[in-house]
Computed example of a mutant assay.
Amino acid sequence: MESTRERTVLLKIAKKKTMISLTLILAMMSCRDIGVEGGRNDNEVPSFGVALLTSGPVSDAGWYGSAYEGIQLIEERFGARISHQQTNTPAEFDEVLRAYATSGYSLIFAHGFEYQDAAVRVGQEFPEVTIVVSSGGRVADNVIPLIFELEEGSYMAGVVAAKMTKSGTIGMVGGVAIPPAEATFVGFEAGAMSVDPEVQVLVNWIGSWDDVAMAKEAAVTLIRRGVDVLIHNTDAASFGVFQAVREARESGVEVWAMGMNRDQNDVASEVILGSAIIRIPEAFVQIATLWSEGQLTPGEAHYAGGRSGAADYVVNPNLSDKYDPELIAEIDSIRLGIADGLIAVPRIEFLERAGGSF
């Protein structure tokens, strides 16, 4: 529950800002105090406040859900006061960031490329607040892009897809064609072509992260064009991809799906060969640890990829019989090669310093 002081601050904000209702702000600022592992006293004052903004639901079993798990893990490890708010329109980005900064949240995770401009604007107003933008492309003194090198996991997925395809055609369903998402498909294609330079790779962008019906339609279109291994980079829309693959298999078409962002193998375990993943909760905890110790370098991006174990490919244990031992060994070898810097996965560079490029 908020203190009287917090409610007073929020009421003042609501009177000045008309873009977000008082009810929304009050809901946003409510938080839970859960004891830390090892026994934090319920009456103990939280060490610091950590907030999370997402532009989609944390029930997506993917990108947003992993971020919410991240702040829960921070709460458990540090006894932090946490809060989450879903922003439904770009107009809310500045308002919610500003409301959190005003209310004492000193570490804010803005989970998505779309928040980068708002983070820079609000960061200038609150230099004492650190804003971490997941997959962000703009850097400022207190705005830290957290770059997930998911293309390293999708590279391994591409290798698997090229080994598994019988048609010689594999496909990708994408949400919004922003650089971090495009980079995952660059990695996927590179991995596939490292196995078979003649493999055909098709892509269908739907312009939405969460439109399940549109994602299903895009997947159906690709399957009709001969795609028999299909990966995605969406959020809640991934359910549409998996449903399309499930229905195609039920009708006798031999086609497989792959998960992305988090381990989605149990979402549709009968059709998902494996998942290209990023370990978002662990990366959030690492950021919070560095920040709490004063070791998070201001004005620099933080990278989370295969070298730190943050990016990976996870075989679906329910379909492990589809993998021959040689392929499993090859995945392990590629994983080690990426970690050791011996395999350079193609990537898209999109970092820019606020006020000018690097």
Score class of each variant (00 low, 15 high):
residue 163 K to V: 06
residue 160 V to R: 01
residue 306 G to S: 03
residue 289 T to N: 04
residue 306 G to H: 02
residue 39 G to Y: 02
residue 356 G to T: 08
residue 194 S to G: 12
residue 245 V to R: 02
residue 50 V to Q: 04
residue 171 G to M: 08
residue 245 V to H: 00
residue 11 L to H: 12
residue 52 L to W: 06
residue 63 W to P: 00
residue 148 F to Q: 14
residue 82 I to K: 09
residue 133 V to M: 06
residue 203 V to Q: 14
residue 83 S to N: 07
residue 189 E to A: 06
residue 236 A to M: 12
residue 159 V to F: 04
residue 6 E to Q: 15
residue 334 I to V: 10
residue 308 S to W: 05
residue 116 Q to V: 10
residue 246 R to N: 11
residue 61 A to N: 15
residue 230 L to V: 09
residue 132 V to R: 14
residue 102 T to Y: 08
residue 75 E to W: 02
residue 114 E to M: 08
residue 295 Q to F: 05
residue 340 D to S: 13
residue 323 Y to I: 10
residue 358 F to R: 15
residue 112 G to H: 08
residue 330 E to C: 04
residue 138 R to L: 15
residue 167 S to E: 03
residue 80 A to M: 03
residue 313 Y to C: 07
residue 120 V to K: 09
residue 21 S to C: 02
residue 244 A to G: 09
residue 281 P to G: 06
residue 12 K to M: 11
residue 170 I to C: 03
residue 76 E to T: 11
residue 188 F to Y: 13
residue 109 F to E: 09
residue 78 F to I: 10
residue 201 V to A: 03
residue 29 M to P: 01
residue 223 I to H: 01
residue 335 R to A: 10
residue 225 R to D: 14
residue 129 V to Q: 12
residue 45 V to P: 04
residue 180 P to L: 02
residue 10 L to C: 12
residue 270 E to M: 05
residue 15 K to Y: 07
residue 179 P to T: 02
residue 328 I to Y: 09
residue 150 L to C: 00
residue 107 L to N: 03
residue 95 E to Y: 09
residue 141 D to L: 13
residue 289 T to W: 01
residue 267 V to E: 10
residue 77 R to D: 02
residue 1 M to L: 11
residue 197 P to V: 03
residue 46 P to K: 12
residue 201 V to H: 01
residue 319 L to G: 09
residue 326 E to W: 05
residue 207 G to C: 05
residue 107 L to E: 04
residue 329 A to Y: 11
residue 235 D to S: 14
residue 208 S to H: 05
residue 132 V to K: 14
residue 211 D to N: 07
residue 161 A to S: 07
residue 269 S to P: 06
residue 47 S to I: 14
residue 174 G to F: 04
residue 11 L to C: 08
residue 106 S to L: 11
residue 280 I to P: 02
residue 188 F to P: 01
residue 11 L to Y: 11
residue 295 Q to D: 15
residue 229 V to S: 02
residue 4 T to Q: 14
residue 199 V to L: 00
residue 313 Y to G: 05
residue 149 E to R: 15
residue 18 T to M: 12
residue 351 L to V: 00
residue 336 L to Q: 15
residue 210 D to Y: 05
residue 358 F to E: 15
residue 334 I to A: 00
residue 77 R to K: 13
residue 133 V to L: 08
residue 8 T to Y: 07
residue 189 E to L: 00
residue 28 M to F: 08
residue 66 S to K: 11
residue 355 G to N: 01
residue 211 D to G: 00
residue 214 M to A: 15
residue 141 D to Q: 14
residue 296 L to P: 00
residue 93 F to Y: 15
residue 220 V to Y: 04
residue 325 P to A: 15
residue 112 G to M: 10
residue 211 D to C: 00
residue 324 D to T: 10
residue 72 Q to R: 15
residue 199 V to G: 00
residue 287 I to N: 11
residue 111 H to Q: 06
residue 357 S to H: 13
residue 262 R to C: 08
residue 10 L to F: 12
residue 212 V to P: 00
residue 94 D to M: 05
residue 53 L to K: 13
